[in-house]
Design a protein around this nucleic acid. Structure first.
Lengths: 107, 107
DNA sequence: GACATATCTCAGTAGCCGCTGAGATAGTTA
DNA sequence: TAACTATCTCAGCGGCTACTGAGATATGTC
C-alpha cells in the first residue's frame, strides 16, 4: 500500500485530447446555434421559424445552420407540400455523440 | 385524438433561454480551458503543471484559470508546504450544473 | 410570364477574444 | 538580504467570427 505524499509540481503531465468536445462547445457557444438545437429537440423546423423566434435575419440563421450541417448535427429536407421550405431536423446520433464528448470532459 | 397535419411555418415560436448552456460552452470552447478542466478530473493541479502540459505560458494559463474561477467551476487553494503554488481543483457541484445545462440543451 | 417567398452563398466589416510582454506581489532558497 | 520561483494583472495587438448587404437560385402563387 502506498501513501500519497506531498508532491512537487510534475513536469511530465500530458494534456488529454479534447478536440471533439472543444469543437462541439464552439458550436454551442453561440446563442443562435444553441437556440436552434434546443428548438429542434421538439421536432423539425424551417429557417424562417428560427429567424422569427431569434429576431435574426434569415441569411444569418442560414449561415449558422450551415455550420451545424457541416458538423453533422442537423440535416435539411424538403416537403412535397412546399418545396421552398428547408425543414431542419437533428441528427440524434450526432447529437448523442456531442453530448457524450461534453459529458466526458466534465465527468 | 388529433392528427398531425402538414403545417405552415409558425411565426409564434418563442426561443428558449439557453444562456447558461451558452456561457458554459463558451468556456469549454477554448482548448486550454477544456484541457484544464479535463486534467482536473483526476485531481488538483498547479498552474505550472497546466502550462507545461499545454505548452503555454503561465500567465496565459493563469488568465484562463481566472475565467474558470469567475464562473465558479474551479477554486484555488495554497499548500502549507509551498505557499507559492496555487493548487486548483474543480468545484464538483458547479461542474455538475454545467454538465446538466449542456445535457439539457442536447436532450 | 410576372411577382412573391424561402433559402443559400459570399465578400466586407466590426467587434470580440486569446496571446504576448511588461511589471507587480508573495513565498522560498542560498 | 539577494536571487529565484510561482503566480497574477493588465494594456496592446492580431486573428477569428458573427453580422450585414448584395445577389443568385428555386419554388409557389396570381
Amino acid at each position: 500500500m502506498t501513501v500519497t505524499l506531498p508532491t512537487r509540481p510534475r513536469r511530465d503531465l500530458v494534456a488529454p485530447d479534447v478536440t471533439n468536445a472543444v469543437n462541439v462547445a464552439q458550436l454551442l457557444g453561440d446563442r443562435s446555434r444553441a437556440t436552434v438545437l434546443a428548438m429542434l429537440a421538439d421536432g423539425p423546423h424551417c429557417v424562417c421559424e428560427f429567424a422569427t423566434a431569434l429576431g435574426a435575419r434569415e441569411n444569418n440563421v442560414s449561415n449558422h445552420l450551415a455550420r451545424l450541417r457541416e458538423a453533422g448535427l442537423v440535416r435539411a429536407t424538403h416537403r412535397a407540400e412546399d418545396g421552398r421550405l428547408a425543414i431542419y431536423e437533428r441528427d440524434e446520433a450526432a447529437v448523442a455523440a456531442a453530448r457524450a464528448a461534453l459529458c466526458t470532459l466534465l465527468r
